[in-house]
Amino acid sequence: MSVALEIKGLKKTYADGFQALKGIDLHVRQGDFFALLGPNGAGKSTTLGILTSVVSKSAGSVCIMGHDIDQDFQQAKQCLGVVPQEFNFNQFEKVFDILVTQGGYYGLSRALAKQRAEKYLRKLDLWDKRDTISRTLSGGMKRRLMIARALVHEPQLLVLDEPTAGVDIELRRSMWEFLTEVNDEGTTIILTTHYLEEAESLCRNIAIIDEGQIIENTSMKSLLRKLTREIFIFDTRNALQAPLELPGFTARIMDDNMLEVEIEVGKEQSLNKLFTLFDGAGIEVTSMRNKSNRLEEMFVNLLKPGNIVGYDKPAEDPMVVPNAAASSGAAS
């Protein structure tokens, strides 16, 4: 499969001497839905800024759909659509005019730009607002306007920098559906987000950037397989009483009817064994869920410096049921 984005040895040092990127390499294949994650200040926005020409790189090369952004900038930019983090459209223009103008910047004839503007405003449920001055739109509408604007020239590579920030869950899910549809039609998408649930459900491949370096670049499945422990929350019908007998598991009673259990993946622990123990202890489970999103768990683990090279786990919570963990030596 061809490469949609190829970054080699990308470095950025700002005028104040801060080195935001320390030579990153990244490959995103055509048709991919790719997550670029990292904490604030890790270098995500700098990377995207370089792709979109609002940040000048210090070294390295960037090719978009095979076009080098230095040698072949027009073709490279023609292939690229951008949804930045901040609202940056003209606040005094009408919604429809913003899209038509954007189309013009990409060489679309006025007639074609109007046609595309209608197409994407309808798809993003903004057609009724076409004659509205953009500053009067709600936050969610502004986010959708940004996406419509980025799509008006139908780019091959769409870069979304936190597109659902501040958007309510219902709208966020409808935007996920829309983006999945765009991706299914062949558009490569690169997404940065702080909603890791979003990245986990949408993206097939992922890179994690921290302190200007890519610390992980793999498929979402591979990354999640590296997760060595998961924490589950169980709601129980009957009241729980310490001490609990769950040999081999680290468990914590949260309240009378809620239990937290940590499962070490790959240490012969399984939910089946746990449920057998529940049966033996007379515990009736009414529901269960992950304590946190799996990708979030992985993300936090990766970013703890010691977890990459010898992270020291914090002291155990005194509420942990001692005999459960100690009996098998499985507790950390």
């Binding site: 020409s53 073709q75 951008v82 930045p84 901040e86 459209f89 003209n90 606040q91 910047y105 990409y106």
Partner: peptide, 17 residues
């Protein structure tokens, strides 16, 4: 005004020379 509102980026990211 274009710089202030940030919509100069509309032009900078486009193929407009």
């Amino acid at each position: 005004g274009t710089k202030f509102q940030g919509n100069i980026e509309e032009l900078l990211v486009s193929p407009t020379a």
